[in-house]
Amino acid sequence: MKFKNISVLFVILLLFWLALNNSLKLPVVLIGIGVSALVALLFCSKCSLFNDMKFSPKALVNTIMFLVVFFIELVKSNIDVTRRVLSPSLPINPGIVEVKTKLKSKFGRMLLANSITLTPGTLTVEVIEDSFFIHWIDVEDDEIGSASKKIVEKFEKYLEVIYG
């Protein structure tokens, strides 16, 4: 488990270094490997962020599906925002609703909260245990069950496979 955390952090740091340098020359790659191994070993001896991450082919397929759904929702949310901002009567109907999530892992919940913030009309205000409090620009439903279905479910089904 410890080895997995360190190796995931090592790969992320190495990719960051290579993208920042924008080259694949031997000295650049060697320095990158050395420094990222050192940083990963020194600073990730106790971290548990990537514990629940899975690396099966099914998880990979779900990651790609998640990204596709995420970008479609991002574009949709911007069309929605543009419509609201530019119409003269300012059609808003805001409120804070509560939704429940089934995700347990920290990283998965962070991704879920970030995706909720970037989807049409919703903004995560507070996270307490397993309920998210969400500012919704146009409240259609303030029951926990049906609001969860409308906001959370489209991302949760992919994140559940990736992070368990």
């Binding site: 805001p94 409120g95 804070i96 507070e126 409090f133």
Partner: peptide, 11 residues
């Protein structure tokens, strides 16, 4: 229209 965070005892 609604503020569930204030009504909730967790808050």
């Amino acid at each position: 229209v609604t503020d569930k965070l204030k009504l909730s005892d967790k808050a």
